[in-house]
Write a protein that binds this DNA or RNA. Structure first.
Length: 567
RNA sequence: UGGGGCGUAGCCAAGUGGUAAGGCAGCGGAUUUUGAUUCCGCCAUCCCCUGGUUCGAAUCCAGGCGCCCCAGCCA
């Protein structure tokens, strides 16, 4: 029986109940299992994305919660698509997400010899045969979704001949595609996976781990369940599309002398709005130059999210919130944003940075004077301390914080209005300076010396507080704003080019940032704007920041004015 | 009349015969030197549809409808 009304107390990291956890709890309670062993089984043919994060959190999370273990096992059975680069990246990503496989790093290729022996076992028991048909012939005889297939003319080959042929396949005597080893099950099955599935194919390719030792490789179906059995996996969790494979998975376990009997359970894979979670598409995005790299901050890859500044805690929180079920769903990207803000709000220190600078000259502030003002680093965490801000006659404020003709709900700077400069003074706009083209190039303001620190002794209130930066002290920097990679909530994965958002990245090259940011490396909140992190493209000469996510913005909702590049 | 799944609010998602949890989004309002955060309150007479069983059904039965997956020597 399910326990936990799950709420409150327990480790914030513990996920709630779901059908998988219920099954496991049941198995344990009924003593069908004495421990829990799961596995995360990526194929090293691409980078991990947020959909994998769901699986990783599920597999490692469940093992942790029930005091079991989770293995990292590379499903490396297709050397034509797999690369060492991916193996290394996957390990780094899983670790970054916060999980540890301990001594349990495995590979399907570790079991190639055993798998081969089991294939011979099947041949010997008359349950597998070598088929000489071409790929096209096999396809033609497989039948259709509504019609049964036809038996291969090689289906009744003698055991000895099958054994001999299979061994020669391994020895490399035949060309790629010349023959395959097939299970002898049922060509008329309604489940196409049972129509004599291929167990081994000839693939003369270099394997990242076994090199050229093999010229035949097992198929996914023949390798996966048996690898699970070898490792003593108890609950083999995979996505819905493998549901049809379960009868085959069980067929092998029933017909082979395996050391344990794992059970497969399927859950729905993650889908997110405004992006695509398909290795094929992600690979094309990279190879086609639509993004700069696998770790481009616009990518839903773990590497991309990491570079963008998303903390691993946010991903874990997100996965916990979306739950695990069997219904296909498309999760709103806003959920991810929420989890990112949730974590960053409490961990990121605050700083000021002006992204689109507008110069302000405070006319009644003495030309030669400068001051040091104190600012808190985190409004909800005193332990984060304070820092000094340089203040002078000339400062920069955000261009969006000024409107020559303010609209109804706009209560920032406009001619004659008074606002507060955070941690500094109240200022009032007196005059607008424009260039020949009529664009505002400078604001002339006056300040009230009595409001130092940001409060008026006479109790006078102000409707807005602006972030700012000292013109004399600020440092120039580049800031990259990322928007949705796709312009549609449900991009067409089979023809994605047309759905790409042309404004997915916006580079602001002339930002003015607070000096203290020069050697601040942690995730940070630029007040009133969002969470940012230093990008690896930064050099001592040029700092580059990535916007991880913007702050919630209720103003743009009421005004209908969205920041540039946003929808 | 191929096989396998799934259908609870705009989006996730609990619930498995006793009278619709929770989260995201949204909407009000309080606090606020971030239009942020925080805090309060609102937000499914109804669970794909139609019948039926029952004192009582989202939950059971029957029949429909809709969506997803499968015809790789990919995983």
């Amino acid at each position: 029986m399910a326990i936990g009304e799950a709420s409150g107390e327990a480790a914030g990291e513990t996920a709630g109940r779901d059908f998988i956890r219920d099954i496991i709890a049941d198995d344990l309670a009924a003593k069908r299992r004495s421990k829990v062993v799961t596995r995360f089984p990526p194929e090293p043919n691409g980078y991990l994305h947020i959909g994998h994060a769901k699986s990783i959190c599920l597999n490692f999370g469940v093992a942790e919660e029930f005091g079991g273990q989770c293995h990292l096992r590379f499903d490396d059975t297709n050397p034509t698509k797999e690369e060492q680069e991916y193996i290394d990246a996957i390990k780094a990503d899983v670790r970054w997400l916060g999980f540890d496989w301990g001594a349990h790093l495995h590979h399907a290729s570790d079991y190639f010899e055993q798998l081969f022996a089991w294939a011979e076992h099947l041949i010997q028991s008359g349950k597998a045969y070598v088929d000489d048909q071409s790929q096209d012939e096999m396809r033609a005889k497989r039948g259709t979704l509504t019609e049964a297939g036809q038996n291969s003319p090689f289906r009744e080959r003698k055991v000895e001949e099958n054994l001999d042929l299979f061994r020669r396949m391994r020895a490399g005597e035949f060309d790629n595609g010349a023959r395959v080893l097939r299970a002898k099950i049922d060509m008329a099955s309604g489940n196409i996976n049972l129509r004599d599935p291929v167990l081994y194919r000839i693939l003369k390719a270099h394997h990242p781990r076994t090199g050229t030792a093999w010229s035949i490789y097992p198929s996914y179906d023949f390798a996966h369940g048996q690898s699970d059995a070898i490792e003593g996996i108890t609950h083999s969790l995979c996505t819905l599309e493998f549901e049809d494979h379960r009868p085959l998975y069980e067929w092998f376990l029933a017909n082979l002398p395996v050391p344990s009997k794992p059970r497969q359970y399927e859950f729905a894979r993650l889908n997110l709005t405004y992006t695509v979670l398909s290795k094929r598409v992600l690979t094309e995005l990279v190879r086609g130059g639509h993004v700069k790299s696998w770790d481009d901050p616009r990518m839903p890859t773990l590497a991309g999210l990491r570079r963008r500044g998303v903390p691993p805690e946010s991903l874990r929180d997100f996965v916990k919130r979306i739950g695990v079920s069997k219904s296909n769903s498309i999760v709103d990207m806003g959920m991810l944003d929420f989890s990112i803000r949730e974590v960053l709000n409490t961990t990121a220190q605050r700083r000021m940075a002006v992204l689109r600078p507008l110069k302000v000259v405070i006319e009644n502030y003495p030309e030669s004077k400068t001051e040091e003002l104190e600012a808190v680093n985190h409004p909800e965490n005193e332990a984060a301390g304070t820092r000094k801000l340089h203040f002078g006659r000339e400062i920069y404020v955000e261009r969006d914080d000024f409107m020559e003709v303010p609209e109804k709900k706009f209560y920032r700077l406009s001619p004659g209005s008074e606002v507060r400069l955070r941690y500094a003074y109240f200022i009032t706009c007196r005059e607008i300076v424009k260039n020949a083209a009529g664009e505002v190039t400078e604001l002339r303001c006056i300040y009230d010396p009595a409001t130092k620190g940001g409060n008026a002794p006479d109790g006078r209130k102000v409707k807005a507080t602006l972030h700012w930066v000292s013109a004399a002290d600020a440092v120039k920097a580049e800031v990259r704003i990322f928007n949705q990679l796709f312009s549609k909530p449900d991009p067409d994965a089979s023809n994605f080019a047309g759905d790409l958002n042309p404004q997915s990245m916006e580079v602001l090259a002339d930002c003015q940032i607070e000096r203290s940011l020069v050697d601040y490396k942690a995730p940070v909140q630029f007040e009133r704007q969002g969470y940012f992190c230093r990008d690896i493209d930064s050099t001592p000469q040029k700092l580059v920041f990535n916007r991880t996510v913007g702050l919630r913005d209720t103003y743009s909702k009421v005004s209908g004015v969205k920041p540039p590049g946003q929808k």
